Amino acid sequence: MRIFLLLFLLFPLAELALLIKVGSSIGVLPTILLLIISGMAGILLMRLAGFATAWRARERLARGELPEREMLQGLMMALAGGLLFLPGFLSDVVALLVLFPPTRKLFLGFVGRRVEAQAQRRRAFADDLRQQQEHRDGPQRPNVIEGEWERRDK
């Protein structure tokens, strides 16, 4: 959580410093044009990523598979588009790293491992809670409602 606070404070400062540095090197007008072009590219990328993700997810669902990989890739493409839309060159570099397929594949692997580890921790925690409850209350019996019924066909 602290890292997010640190990034929230340092990222805009780094973006501003880089904008000033680039603006003093190439000039104000080319810097503004680069920012406008990257923003337009970000908007276009977000639109295309949304359509492509929906298309791939629909294909996987039609085959009876879960589209978790496609949804995560689409989310990353939308994140890259949002970073391109933000004014600044540091966010553009991060967006290009997310867009580059080998880097994106590494990032997807990292995120997949983190999600799996989190799921394992939650599963272990839930098992511990269940064992504690069974120890305290005794073994759980299924909820069964006894009754009589008869079938009446016309």
Rank of each mutant, 00 (worst) to 15 (best):
L18C: 07
A62T: 11
M40R: 10
G81S: 03
D92K: 04
A52N: 15
L44C: 05
A80V: 03
V93Q: 12
I36T: 05
M40D: 10
R56K: 07
M40P: 11
A62K: 15
G23E: 05
G50R: 07
L75K: 10
G39Y: 02
G88A: 02
M40F: 13
E70Q: 08
F85D: 12
W55I: 14
A17R: 08
L99N: 08
L61R: 11
L79P: 12
P101A: 03
F51S: 13
I26G: 09
A57S: 14
M46G: 09
L66H: 12
A80S: 08
P102H: 00
G74D: 05
E59M: 14
E68W: 15
L97D: 07
G74M: 03
L97H: 03
P30S: 06
I37N: 02
S24D: 15
L90A: 11
V94E: 09
P101I: 00
P30A: 00
I37M: 12
L75E: 10
L35G: 14
A78M: 14
G82K: 03
S25D: 15
L75V: 06
S38M: 08
L86K: 03
L66R: 09
L96F: 06
P67H: 01
G42S: 07
P30Y: 01
G23H: 02
T53G: 12
V93T: 14
A80M: 05
P102F: 03
V28W: 15
A78W: 10
V22R: 02
G88I: 01
I26V: 11
G23R: 03
L29D: 05
E70L: 02
A95K: 00
I43N: 13
R47F: 10
Q73D: 09
L48S: 13
L45Q: 12
G88Y: 00
A17P: 06
A41Y: 04
G74R: 01
P101C: 01
V98I: 15
A49W: 01
G42L: 02
V22G: 00
L35T: 07
A57P: 11
L66N: 14
A41K: 10
G42V: 01
I32F: 09
L72M: 14
T53K: 03
G27F: 00
A78L: 13
G42M: 02
V94N: 04
W55H: 15
G42W: 02
G88Q: 04
A62D: 12
L18R: 11
L97T: 09
P101Q: 04
T31E: 07
A17T: 12
M77I: 10
M71I: 15
P101W: 00
L84Q: 00
L86I: 14
A54F: 12
L72V: 06
S91H: 07
S25L: 12
G42C: 02
L97N: 11
T53D: 15
V93E: 07
